[in-house]
Design a binder for these strands. Structure first.
Lengths: 200, 200
DNA sequence: GTCTATATGTGGATAGAC
DNA sequence: GTCTATCCACATATAGAC
């Protein structure tokens, strides 16, 4: 009987997952804001009201998508590696750009406010906050401290990805500048570390 | 009789202008995408269908707003001045950031694709293309050539303004970094002029 | 859990009177 | 030019049968 409960819960999760996948597909095709419950339901062979068994509202469905996307980004960034702090930062930023440009729709949901009336729940939003804090730590591990340099780096990479997605979706005209951007940044802000090393 | 024609045309333009102003006010209050013809009309003491005397469709109204905003930006940037090319570039970039952050709604219409189903007409879009080309010329006048540096600068400033607007609208946490960002950029790319370039 | 039926609301756009 | 009346399509969400 406990087995039955488990089985039911698993099937339920599976259906919920199928619904979310259908929502992503439609959002990629027609745009995030153009999502309708009718279309999502039709895509999994249901009618719109049936979705309310899985999500209490449309915005809760957006929130589940947001959480999925944010978790995916966090996982991608956690996979960063390198022999030293600078290499790990470089890898992390490359992964960031790669993740953002791989799926503009996903990027828009997480980083832009492109769905009128939707804001992520505190819980879902926290996933992105944690990822940002980890990036801040990676920057500091590379010897760069202070809000200003960090926010400048953040702005630079935000700008590159958003130009990429707005003007050349699917391409890499701006994405390939990630390394160059980091070099420019390190040229200016990593000098303390190098000078200190040289001086010592 | 020609006078009458003129008077009528002037009144018409005046009303059209009032409609646009009402649209901006509502867009700032409720968001660009939340604009409705009913609300806009009500704000100028009309009913929705009357607006069709001034704009053939809602998207044409958006396009008129886009053209207005783009022209305003172009005029602002044309006012840039300075004693040398670098100062003029710095002033131009300051003006850019100032213009963008002064009115997030205006910025969103011109630089983000935040209205589903709306794209500017070729004619309106051209205004922004011209402004961008003039900025490119200002960068080259400062001795910096090539697509890559220019696009990197463009990305950096795009990123700063978008962070500013998304996270601190009305404030200046990121806007004040404009000078710092340009310094970082010049550190790396204006050195050709002054000394041998390091690295590749 | 899924359905049909429906409440309830929205908003762009057109027809035709004045 | 502005109005009323209306069309039409759409969408979220609920009630209640099965």
């Amino acid at each position: 009987m406990l087995d039955e409960v488990d089985t039911r819960a698993i099937r339920r999760e599976s259906t919920r997952s199928r619904v979310l996948q259908a929502a992503w597909e439609l959002a990629r095709r027609d745009g995030l804001a153009a999502l309708t419950l009718r279309d999502v339901a039709a895509r999994v062979g249901m009618r719109a009201p049936s979705l309310y068994s899985y999500f209490p509202s449309k915005n809760e469905m957006y929130d589940a998508m947001f959480a999925e996307a944010a978790s995916s980004l966090a996982a991608e960034l956690r996979g960063s590696s390198g022999n030293d702090a600078e290499s790990r930062l470089r890898d992390r930023l490359r992964r960031f750009v790669g993740w953002c440009t791989a799926d503009p729709t996903r990027y828009q949901l997480v980083f832009q406010r492109s769905v009128p009336g939707f804001a992520p729940s505190e819980e879902s939003y926290q996933i992105t906050v944690d990822a940002l804090r980890a990036t801040r730590e990676a920057v500091e591990a590379a010897g760069i401290r202070g809000d200003k340099p960090f926010e400048l780096l953040r702005g630079t990479f935000n700008g590159l990805t958003s130009l990429q997605i707005a003007n050349d979706p699917g391409g890499n005209r701006w994405a390939v500048m990630a390394d160059e951007a980091l070099d420019m940044f390190l040229d200016r802000y990593a000098h303390q570390r190098r000078r200190a090393r040289r001086g010592a």
